[in-house]
């Protein structure tokens, strides 16, 4: 087993690998973490995710733009693919499944894929419907998988307007399902108006919102169980 200093060194390698979009460094760091018996979950969060948090900060500071983020995401996945099979039961206080996709009429999926990455990292089961997804498919998939969360993404204003229809249909069939909308043209006002439970303009907000929502859902269920 590696000592504290070595552990730190490996996590730092993963972290900077993500920040400097260095896929090889992330792969190497992940392999070292595995072969030296480090906790895979810890390596993901203290290494890869910590790096992604810094990337988010660099994006906000306008030092990084979308091309850099995409490259950082590739680096994160390079490490994640190696670490994931070694993960024990995730202990995030949440465990859930999510249906995600870009709504019909929109073929842009960069934002959706970044959000998906955050769910992958957090150990969610992700049902990715892809892009240009017919609205009813979200409703069907939610029912089929009984996912607690549905995420709808749109980059174009022109496709965003399909969202309220999906929200209404899912809520009619399954009022407890949480719905999150995201993408450049969406706003908190629209989310409120359309009855969505969360809203995220970008990937880092989406993860925070998602975890908040699943935790809330668990609380609701726990309360129900207690009443029985």
């Amino acid at each position: 087993m590696a000592d504290e200093a070595r552990k730190k060194e490996i996590y730092e390698k993963l972290r900077t690998g993500v920040i400097q979009y260095d896929e090889d460094a992330c792969r190497e760091g992940a392999q070292e973490a595995v072969s030296e018996g480090l906790d895979a979950n810890e390596a993901i969060f203290d290494g890869l995710v910590s790096g992604m948090e810094e990337v988010g900060r660099l994006f906000e500071a306008q030092e990084y733009f979308v091309p850099e983020i995409l490259m950082c995401a590739d680096a994160l996945y390079a490490g994640l693919d190696i670490l994931k099979p070694h993960c024990k039961q995730m202990d995030l206080g949440v465990k859930g499944s999510v249906v995600i996709g870009t709504v019909e009429g929109d073929v842009h999926d960069i934002g959706k894929n970044l959000v998906k990455m955050m769910f992958d990292v957090a150990g969610f089961t992700v049902y990715d419907l892809g892009r240009d997804v017919p609205l009813d498919k979200f409703v069907d998939e939610q029912l089929k998988t009984d996912s607690e969360l549905v995420c709808l993404s749109a980059m174009m204003t022109t496709s965003m307007v399909g969202m309220p229809k999906v929200i209404e249909k899912i809520k009619a069939k399954n009022p407890n399902c949480m719905i999150m909308i995201g993408g450049a043209p969406t706003s908190k006002e629209l989310a409120d108006k359309w009855g969505a439970d969360g809203y995220a303009e970008d990937a880092s907000n989406a993860l925070k919102e998602a975890i908040k929502m699943v935790a809330f859902l668990k609380k609701l269920r726990d309360e129900k169980i207690q009443k029985k």
Binding site: E104, G105, D106, M156, T158, S159, V161, G162
Partner: peptide, 11 residues
Amino acid sequence: YPHAEGILYPT
């Protein structure tokens, strides 16, 4: 989207 009920722009 020739069969779409509402308004969907071509992609």
